Computed example of a mutant assay.
Amino acid sequence: MSTTTAAPKLKTSAMIASFADPGQKTAPAPFGHALAKAAEQDERIVGLTADLGKYTDMHIFAQAHPDRYFQMGMSEQLLFGAAAGMAEAGLTPFASTYSVFAARRAYDFICLDIAEPNLNVNVVGGLPGLTTGYGPSHQATEDMAIFRGMPNLTIVDPCDSIDIEQAVPQLAASEGPTYLRLLRGKVPTVLDEYDYTFELGKAKVLRGGADVVFVSSGLMTMRALQAAELLAAHKVDVAVVHAPTIKPLDVDTIVAELDTPRLAVTLENHSVVGGLFESVASALVRRGVSRRVVPVGLPDAFLDAGALPTLHDRYGLSKEKIVETVLAELG
């Protein structure tokens, strides 16, 4: 009698892989815990999802407030239409799905049901940019480009667990619609070492530097800080400006930091088309500041599938690749 060894059961770990470095300090499901905590203080807060409660950390809220949690099934248009109705009735909805489904599949519903009447609906998008190895169907590399053109919509790209925990109550309190690029699962805790506080609409200078200035958002602020430490070994002094709010952009802070002789670099987990780089470039032109800015971001292409460390290195998002880029620019 022959026996066979069963193949290991495939899991969804590739879909929800963490971008945290081995041994890095992390916090579990910061969005879910922050939303549950905010709901204890504000009875108007409700949570909705489109069959992705576990994979957007909304399940934490569901466990804490089951009577205020709504599972809408695999129908993103219904998700945001229902959220709009709840907001019209005076509630404060947080509606979660993957960024690709919100930006590509439900754009018209978010635009006309939520943004046009300026309702307080908070769109929560998981797997933003290159945070999954599943390829173009789930990689939201152009979500900010899609949403930046929508009037009334505030866009937030948090760096870490601190950003998310502090952003959630501020998003709930803001009057109009918001889009949060969600980092979920075990999320790195980075900004606690920089005397940082999240303020909606504000960029913050995390560290000063005489040679280079990084303007970054999202997980790329973590990488910017790491790269700055590595560049110090090359005697390159790097400033890091974290811009968690993409729209409205804190033009005053960013232009003041970039209007210097230092090498200027933007870093984003998004296509170089339509995201932070082009927002910053536009702000400089509008203010009459003529200078070159080097973009570190994803290419204008459909990206490969694979392991996240491999993909981040391939597309220039790893700290090592950032260091290479800066040293090449400095000559």
Score class of each variant (00 low, 15 high):
residue 249 L to Q: 03
residue 81 G to C: 07
residue 68 R to E: 01
residue 87 A to H: 05
residue 83 A to C: 09
residue 252 D to Q: 15
residue 63 Q to S: 15
residue 218 G to T: 13
residue 210 A to W: 09
residue 310 T to N: 06
residue 102 A to E: 07
residue 226 Q to N: 10
residue 229 E to G: 02
residue 304 D to N: 12
residue 288 G to E: 02
residue 149 G to I: 12
residue 289 V to L: 02
residue 25 K to A: 14
residue 209 G to I: 12
residue 292 R to G: 10
residue 173 A to P: 05
residue 300 D to C: 08
residue 70 F to N: 12
residue 295 P to C: 12
residue 110 I to Q: 09
residue 302 F to W: 13
residue 251 V to E: 14
residue 197 T to N: 11
residue 325 T to G: 05
residue 91 L to S: 06
residue 92 T to S: 15
residue 93 P to M: 05
residue 246 I to L: 13
residue 47 G to I: 00
residue 212 V to Q: 04
residue 56 T to P: 00
residue 296 V to S: 04
residue 77 Q to E: 10
residue 21 D to G: 03
residue 308 L to N: 06
residue 281 A to I: 03
residue 252 D to R: 15
residue 61 F to C: 01
residue 117 P to L: 13
residue 89 A to Y: 01
residue 228 A to H: 07
residue 225 L to G: 03
residue 264 A to T: 05
residue 58 M to S: 02
residue 118 N to E: 11
residue 138 H to K: 00
residue 286 R to E: 14
residue 275 G to I: 05
residue 42 D to Q: 04
residue 14 A to K: 07
residue 216 S to L: 02
residue 321 K to I: 00
residue 42 D to L: 02
residue 142 E to N: 04
residue 141 T to A: 06
residue 86 M to H: 04
residue 257 E to R: 15
residue 194 Y to L: 01
residue 71 Q to V: 08
residue 90 G to V: 10
residue 94 F to N: 08
residue 179 Y to C: 04
residue 306 G to A: 08
residue 123 V to E: 11
residue 208 G to P: 03
residue 230 L to G: 11
residue 171 L to N: 06
residue 257 E to I: 12
residue 204 K to F: 12
residue 216 S to Q: 02
residue 26 T to Y: 02
residue 54 K to E: 05
residue 299 P to G: 11
residue 259 D to F: 14
residue 95 A to Y: 04
residue 230 L to A: 14
residue 29 A to E: 04
residue 34 A to T: 09
residue 233 A to Y: 06
residue 308 L to A: 06
residue 264 A to M: 11
residue 197 T to I: 15
residue 30 P to D: 09
residue 131 T to F: 01
residue 207 R to C: 06
residue 112 L to V: 14
residue 267 L to D: 09
residue 206 L to R: 07
